[in-house]
């Protein structure tokens, strides 16, 4: 088997040599190692002041997008719930009433849309499954809570407000677009 590093030493119970028995050379060697580390750059990131840079396609808290006119894109088709391996997503569909055209883009919409953040594994399959480009994972971190109940996020948290739109352009590149439109893949037919 190939070794991971070249630093591994084969252990043996041979008699120690004189130099090993007087300990001092080994101690000095160890001390030279620790003193070089003493002056090395620290690897710590001082969290509240400094933050670790996220990947551009970091998968954090979900967002339910609106279109440019402020209408919810989700049509409650349920594909995300089917795709979800952790079964974290539930929804209840409802029919759009006349006069609600400015709220929902299509004739069917999700009256209730809930994601259980304790079940969610942030795999991003819901985003892949969505045919309406309604759900995306963002670089926001799910906040901690004291109880289990608040971790079930409803539409009040998930749907983006129009005055505070969530930028998902990093995740929705043209390559992703082409992939979703390509009829050669079974899921797009």
């Amino acid at each position: 088997m190939e070794k991971l590093t070249n630093r591994s030493v084969v252990a043996s119970d041979k008699k120690m040599t004189f130099m090993e028995r007087i300990y001092v050379p080994a101690i000095l060697k160890g001390m030279s190692i620790t003193i070089t580390h003493f002056f090395k750059k620290k690897t710590t990131i001082n969290y509240p002041e400094e933050k670790r840079e996220f990947s551009k396609v970091y998968r954090g808290q979900h967002v339910l997008k609106r279109d440019d006119e402020g209408r919810e894109r989700c049509t409650a088709c349920g594909l995300c719930a089917v795709a979800c391996p952790a079964e974290a997503i539930t929804m209840v569909a409802a029919e759009r009433k006349p006069g609600e055209e400015h709220l929902y883009r299509e004739e069917k919409y999700a009256a209730i849309y809930e994601i259980n953040m304790l079940r969610c594994i942030f795999c991003g399959d819901c985003e892949d499954a969505c045919p309406k480009e309604a759900i995306f994972l963002t670089d926001r971190i799910v906040a901690s809570e004291y109880k289990r109940k608040p971790f079930v996020y409803g539409k009040d948290i998930l749907v983006e407000p129009m005055d505070l739109r969530v930028d998902i352009s990093a995740r929705q590149t043209s390559a992703v677009h082409d992939f979703k439109k390509n009829k050669a893949f079974a899921h797009n037919r």
Binding site: I35, H37, F38, F39, K40, K41, K42, T43, T44, N46
Partner: peptide
């Protein structure tokens, strides 16, 4: 000293 020798703060 312990922290510095272990690359911590």
């Amino acid at each position: 000293v312990a922290a510095f020798m272990q690359d911590r703060n």
